[in-house]
Design a protein around this nucleic acid. Structure first.
Length: 823
RNA sequence: GCGCGCGUGGCGGAAUUGGCAGACGCACUAGAUUUAGGUUCUAGCGGUAACCCCGUGCAGGUUCAAGUCCUGUCGUGCGCACCA
């Protein structure tokens, strides 16, 4: 051991040791408590950033702590390695995506290793490896065989910059999730996964996810967007088909004064064909089509519409009402058509005022301040029904029930549940993804590739232009194939899968990552699943976490996933900021992990990140704070260096004798207790570390006292090294060795504490007068309420306080305070 | 507009159950060590000259006691948003 803390040497030494001894490789041990700890695997961009370091440092503390506590910990790592950046690099630099990606993986793996994370590298997966995407394709075929994958022509979100379609979830504020380019619409035939079949379960099963942040659950609930209402059919005068609408307010049916079709609604063309309205309607539709999604859905956009010369019949009262098309009705929600009740819906109200359509109130608010026949705005709450024939006088809730029954009895509608969630569009017109393992045959239609032919390999003879169709069309070898069903000529699907599919099941593959015969051994999956703790950025609250839950449920249904939900506990870590904003190249405020590791070592980097803020909060990077963490590690190192020779031979048994001993024992056991609780019950690493720092300060005090108790001191220093080990593993291994132990400290059990030692004989008590602290006194701890009151009153300081005052009440809180209420 | 968070010293943050507000760290100040700087060590560090007193965004309320609970309000961050 050198006198100076040589972190470079120490970290290299122990990383090599862990690798050589296969310290963190795990296998199933039935009967032993398992813990599956998972951090979101990274996209291999080539460079690790601070967000990664934070994510994985948090995970590593938990993994190492639980390992020391005797759990069988699964802690894997891998690569979400399909995706657009690789392809863009290929277009720009002429490097094949495969080469680019694997180079990056190699580089990032090395970086992760310099941070000393306790991964079982034997389980590493890369989604771009054929051994992985073979099973991705297998899952797709399972979806197809169960009727949950289908191809459909539909207007889809198109990112002109990425030259590909996007799922609804990947459109953020009308722009592409990745490049923020405004997204347009294109009519394309694409593959979809029927996630909507799982909407109800995805929603309901969240009730059991107590270990998830409310925020994430709320976001998913809103995204799924369940609304209960009714579908009602309105006959159209002079037209064979009826107009089906969805409403959440069947109680307002009698207040309908007009109807609206979405401009894209398939009926529109037929309804105006050959009429004087035909041209106007065509113009209007064109105008709406050119609007981007951002404008179309903006609340500030003026409502515009057009009467199309047709009338619908209200099935409740037989009244005819005009049919409009309008920009505020969207084709892809509900039925793409609405009934308009201007008196009780603000949007309809605005529209009715603009186009001078009658406003008929049917819900009485029972409020004198509202004049129902001269409304200034729509009354949108519930109330009592009026102008509603046989339903007059009912409150909204009862009316909804009775009207729904009436609708069903008369066969004009029924109670319906509607979801905001759309089916998941998974086709991508790009190269660097898993090929969709489907073939089209003129005789058999769309058929899946035979399982024994998987994987459908990505062809390598492909040109990258970044334009037009999927690059797979440029392959001479890929397109033509044999139909798996009839043996005739068939053509392969040229689109690849959205990379979010790859990351929707990797956590299951880790349980048996190298299996070539099946997707995973069910017994192995059963041993490890579900993931006990999942850690990652909140930006995945909807996309990844919803998709992964969907995949897991499907795989559960077909007997492959052992649990209904994949992730029991979820921790969403906060962002790493510098100067108050997210680190980014364009702002020039990026702090590179490599630099910090080189200057201070991985242990310092980890310590700073864990100490500066609680994990779920944002973390402001501070160079001075890093210095402080480095200083602390030096301080601990010096302490051990100075004491090691005498402590090596110190007795293992000891008795706490002097007041100084008691003080050290108190701090020792308090620190162990605090760290144990903060790591076990809640992940507050910052407060755990502050407890460790207090212990170090105490040890510096204790080593200067006249009568040192070597046995106690040894126990204290060794415990210090052990409780600090999950946070800063390398320096702790080194110190452990220097204290005379052979091998890794991760074979040591987690230190235990003596509750009695954490309680002082005498405790400080605050004496309050009317709730204000006046005196501090010491009394024995552990007293009953009565004895406590007696003791405190016997104290002369309290006596002095009572002098000349009229006591109304005494409130004793044993061990804490005495509040005396006086007049 | 709707939903969910968050507002505590110069800064990051602590106070887990309603019970001493400001743990721990950073920055700062003074002193010791050092030829000097750095390192290290010691002490101080919410406001106020000061004891009293005042202090957890603001205004109320409940309570013997409120950073913590309730009502309102302002600010801020995130999510969703013409969802019928």
């Amino acid at each position: 051991m050198q006198a100076n803390y040589n972190f470079t040497e120490i970290e290299k030494k122990w990383q090599t040791h862990w690798e050589k001894t296969q310290q963190f490789q795990t296998t199933e041990e039935p009967g032993r408590d398992k813990f599956y700890l998972l951090e979101m695997f990274p996209y291999p961009s080539g460079k690790l950033h601070m967000g990664h370091v934070r994510n994985y440092s948090i995970g590593d503390v938990i993994a190492r702590h639980l390992t020391m506590k005797g759990k069988n910990v699964l802690h894997p790592m891998g690569w979400d390695s399909f995706g657009l950046p690789a392809e863009n690099a290929a277009i720009k630099n002429g490097i094949h995506p495969n080469v680019w990606t694997w180079d990056n993986i190699t580089e990032m793996r090395e970086q992760l290793k310099t941070l000393g994370f306790s991964y079982d590298w034997e389980r590493e997966v890369a989604t771009c490896h054929p051994d992985y995407y073979k099973w991705m394709q297998w899952i797709f075929i399972q979806f197809f065989n169960h009727g949950l994958a289908y191809k459909k022509k539909n207007p889809v979100n198109w990112c002109p910059s990425c030259q590909t379609v996007l799922a609804n979830e990947q459109v953020v504020e009308g722009g592409c999730e990745r490049c923020h380019t405004p997204v347009g619409k294109k009519d394309l035939e694409q593959w979809y996964l029927k996630i909507t079949d799982y909407a109800e379960r995805l929603l309901n099963d969240m009730d059991g996810l107590d270990g998830w942040p409310t925020k994430v659950k709320t976001m998913q609930r809103n995204w799924i967007g369940k609304s209960i209402g009714a579908e009602v059919d309105f006959p159209i005068s002079g037209f064979a088909e009826t107009m089906r609408i969805f409403t959440t307010r069947p109680d307002t049916l009698f207040g309908v004064t007009y109807m609206v079709l979405s401009p894209e609604h398939p009926y529109v063309e037929k309804l105006v064909a050959g009429t004087e309205y035909q041209n106007q309607v065509a113009d209007f539709r064109k105008k709406v089509q050119y609007l981007s999604d951002i404008d179309r859905t903006s609340t500030t956009l003026e409502k515009e519409g057009l009467f199309i010369g047709r009338y619908a019949v209200n099935p409740m009262n037989g009244k005819e009402v005009p049919i409009y098309i309008a920009n505020y009705v969207l084709m892809d929600y509900g039925t793409g058509a609405i009934m308009a009740v201007p008196a009780h819906d603000q949007r309809d109200f605005d529209f009715a005022v603009k186009y001078e359509i009658p406003i008929v109130p049917v819900i009485d608010p029972c409020d004198d301040t509202i004049d129902l026949y001269d409304l200034k705005e729509a009354f949108v709450s519930e109330g009592k029904l009026i102008n509603s024939g046989p339903f007059d006088g009912l409150d909204s809730e009862t009316a909804i029930e009775q009207i729904n029954q009436y609708l069903e009895k008369e066969n004009i509608g029924k109670k319906t549940v509607n979801f905001r969630l759309r089916d998941w569009l998974i086709s991508r017109q790009r190269y660097w993804g898993a090929p969709i393992p489907m073939l089209h045959c003129d005789h058999c239609g769309w058929v899946p590739e035979r399982l024994e032919n998987l994987p459908v390999l990505l062809p390598t003879d492909v040109e990258f232009t970044g334009k037009g169709e999927s690059p797979l069309t440029t392959s001479k070898t890929f397109l033509e194939a044999e139909c798996p069903t009839c043996g005739g000529k068939a053509t392969r699907e040229i689109d690849t899968m959205d990379t979010f599919l790859d990351s929707s099941w990797y956590f299951l593959r880790y349980t048996d990552a190298k299996n070539e015969m099946e997707i995973w051994d069910k017994d192995k999956a059963k041993y490890w699943m579900p993931v006990d703790q999942y850690i990652g950025g909140v930006e995945h609250a909807i996309l990844h976490l919803l998709y992964a839950r969907f995949f897991n449920k499907f795989l559960y249904d077909i007997g492959y996933a052992p649990s209904v939900e994949p992730f029991t506990n979820l921790l969403t870590q906060g962002m790493v900021l510098k100067d108050g904003t997210k680190m980014s190249k364009s702002k020039g405020n990026v702090v590179s992990p490599e630099e910090i590791i080189q200057k201070y070592g991985a242990d310092t980097a980890r310590l700073f990140i864990l100490f500066a803020a609680p994990p779920e909060k944002e973390l402001e990077w501070s160079d001075a704070g890093v210095e402080g963490s480095f200083r602390f590690l030096n301080r601990v190192y010096r302490l051990v260096f100075e004491l090691r020779d005498e402590l090596k031979d110190a007795p293992k048994e000891y008795t706490v004798a002097t007041e100084d001993d008691k003080e050290l024992a108190y701090h020792l056991h308090s620190a162990i207790k605090k760290v144990t609780e903060d790591l076990g019950n809640r992940f507050n690493f910052n407060t755990a570390l502050s407890a460790v720092m207090i212990l170090v300060n105490e040890l510096y005090r204790y080593k200067t006292v006249r009568e040192r108790n070597e046995g106690l001191l040894r126990h204290a220093v060794e415990s210090l090294v052990l409780v600090l080990a999950p946070f800063t593993p390398h320096i702790c291994e080194e110190m452990w060795e220097q204290l005379g132990h052979a091998g890794s400290l991760y074979k040591e059990p987690w230190p235990t504490y003596d509750e009695k030692a954490t309680i002082k004989d005498e405790v400080e008590i605050v004496v309050q007068i009317n709730g204000k602290g006046k005196e501090k006194i010491y009394v024995a701890s552990g007293l009953s309420k009565e004895a406590f009151l007696e003791e405190t009153l016997a104290n002369p300081k309290v006596g002095a306080l009572l002098e000349g005052r009229q006591v109304v009440k005494m409130i004793p809180v044993p061990g804490k305070l005495l509040n005396i209420v006086v007049k």
